[in-house]
Design a protein around this nucleic acid. Structure first.
Lengths: 329, 329
DNA sequence: TTGAAAGCGCTAACAG
DNA sequence: CTGTTAGCGCTTTCAA
């Protein structure tokens, strides 16, 4: 366990050749005679030799085969879907994914970025926890889901405003006026965009009646459950609900469970079993979000220069029943 | 973008000291005068210097701060919960998690393990895709969810047999006799253990009537949906269903949707919204599974020797309605 | 087709 | 308190 693994020079010695020849043989370079190549490979096998990627990378340019992803907890299906897409795309190019959880803390995020950069990751993908500034580096940076503050950089965003607008319009079309909006932390740009999109649609439809039912900075399912319960317990409860991410939709569903006449519900983010539960959602391809980000990063790694690019992932409203419940007067 | 980042010796030169002094200053070692320390740090800031972890690690022992996790797709909530637990625990110790997806392919798994070992990960955590042998290394190995074949190693397992037995007993207690068992790939030991536990309980209860309703190697939700549909369409349909993982439970729920008199259902693995949908499950703490594995790995990294250990994560049956539907004659 | 020497960026060991 | 020398394991010259 604690003995050092065999080195190339040990292999070379055993095969009776120089280190360089051993190196050539094991890397499949040309100009190695068949016999020598075989001898080296045998020696390597006997010793259980494995290349030392650290040394190689140090020598060949000081950068690793690693790409870092900083996001929220992988236990959240949104982040894990993104990570899955990123990993898939990276693997195609022989790159490895290092995932770290920022715990939604901007300061931790910065120090994690620092740790990853010390490890000489080839690129850094970030789902920013808030408005932490990370720029000023020589490593390609790609922002996911939320645009970078303060400086331009490649990013992949969801059509947040458009998606929220479609949800709003869908509910308006169902005859709803008193529509509650339950949103997550205002400090994330994606949440603000969703709220703005919703508000814009309401304004366009000349409906101000939703305003008393706006609840923001609701950050977990339990709080969402409570908030929705309170909204419905009021004297003039909303006839419809729009929740701005999967966690909040989950909480709302818990609050609605068992109610005789539940309000209409549309949630941002699709989720497993939404079809079974019959929840109308604003869906978007989270895995593709990750893939697109990895692609942008890979192009930069490959030397692409040019102005920052932004990819926007479209949204689709999927009607499954909950969003089509009629307004009651 | 392509200029080499500044090195320690550049910092040293700028600060007018030797490399070693610069190294000491930046690593917070003792025996550096205040003034020198300040000068070095200033020089580093001006140059935008960042330590090169690759070089450091090569020098200090040839191993990185990385731990590898090889598992199925992170898009599956089981794997992402595990990864979340692993990452949390590793982060406490300043270790970084590299996640790779084996695509359920034993050969890919081996080559990924090889790639990670070349990067000199400090430990390797594996949720084996099947019966691929990975042993024979000098790096700590921990197996998750499925025991290693062929050689002893640390592992963290779920009480598969016990959980399946409790599901079986629960359904038997509800008066069911014709109980369908829908299981995933037989080549994974965890699936076999679940089937065995179920079968043992049936045998103990003297009930052979489930046997015609055994379906195995059902690997995705769509297939599960179809299989369950077929089971229920038969002349003498089962009155209850046991699905052996979250994907299959999802499929079963889709098949059951809208049925007037659905059979009872118990699923292995808890999942988001199981409470909302009212699904009785055999639950277990997947995040803790990951944490425990990371802990075992960390102890080995720290030099712990001794025989392989096995941690078993207990299961709990959570009754939520679907598993309590009575048997109809 | 092969090898010797140099050095990637850092730290350990030993002087001063 | 600070500096010098050596070398981690590999690849890149350049020469044989």
């Amino acid at each position: 366990m604690n003995i050092r693994p065999p080195t190339l020079s040990q292999v070379a010695a055993r095969a009776g050749v120089s280190v360089k020849t051993a190196s050539r043989a094991l890397n499949g370079e040309p100009y190695v005679s068949r016999a020598t190549g075989r001898r080296v490979r045998e020696a390597a096998d006997e010793l259980g030799y494995r290349l030392n990627g650290l040394a190689r990378e140090l020598r060949t340019g000081g950068t690793s085969a690693l790409v870092g992803l900083i996001s929220g907890d992988l236990a959240n299906p949104f982040y894990s879907a993104v990570a899955s897409g990123v990993e898939r795309e990276l693997r195609r190019h022989g790159l490895l994914l290092v995932t770290v959880n920022n715990d939604e803390d901007a300061q931790l995020e910065r120090s994690l970025a620092e740790a990853l950069l010390e490890r000489r990751v080839r690129a850094l993908l970030i789902v920013p926890s808030g408005d932490g500034v990370i720029g000023g580096h020589d490593v390609p940076l790609v922002f996911l889901d939320r645009p970078p503050v303060d400086h331009a950089a490649d990013s992949v965003l969801i059509d947040n405003a458009g998606g929220a607008r479609s949800a709003a319009q869908h509910l308006l079309a169902g005859g709803h006026r008193r529509i509650a909006l339950v949103a997550d932390l205002l400090r994330t740009a994606s949440q603000r965009a969703r709220i703005d999109g919703f508000a814009a649609a309401m304004r366009a439809a000349g409906n101000p009646e939703w305003e008393p039912y706006l609840r923001t900075d609701v950050h977990d399912a339990a709080t969402a459950e409570r908030v929705v319960g309170e909204l419905l317990a009021g004297p003039e409860p909303p006839t419809a609900l729009f929740t701005t991410n999967n966690r909040l939709t989950t909480g709302a569903l818990r609050a609605l469970r068992g109610r005789a006449r539940p309000p209409a519900l549309v949630g941002f983010d699709d989720f497993e079993l939404a079809d079974v539960v019959g929840v109308t959602v604003v869906a978007h391809d989270m895995t593709e979000l990750g893939r697109a980000a990895a692609r942008l990063a890979y192009e930069r790694i490959g030397g692409h220069t040019g102005p920052p690019r932004t990819v926007v992932i479209p949204t689709t409203l999927i009607a499954r029943g909950s969003g089509e419940r009629p307004a009651r007067p």
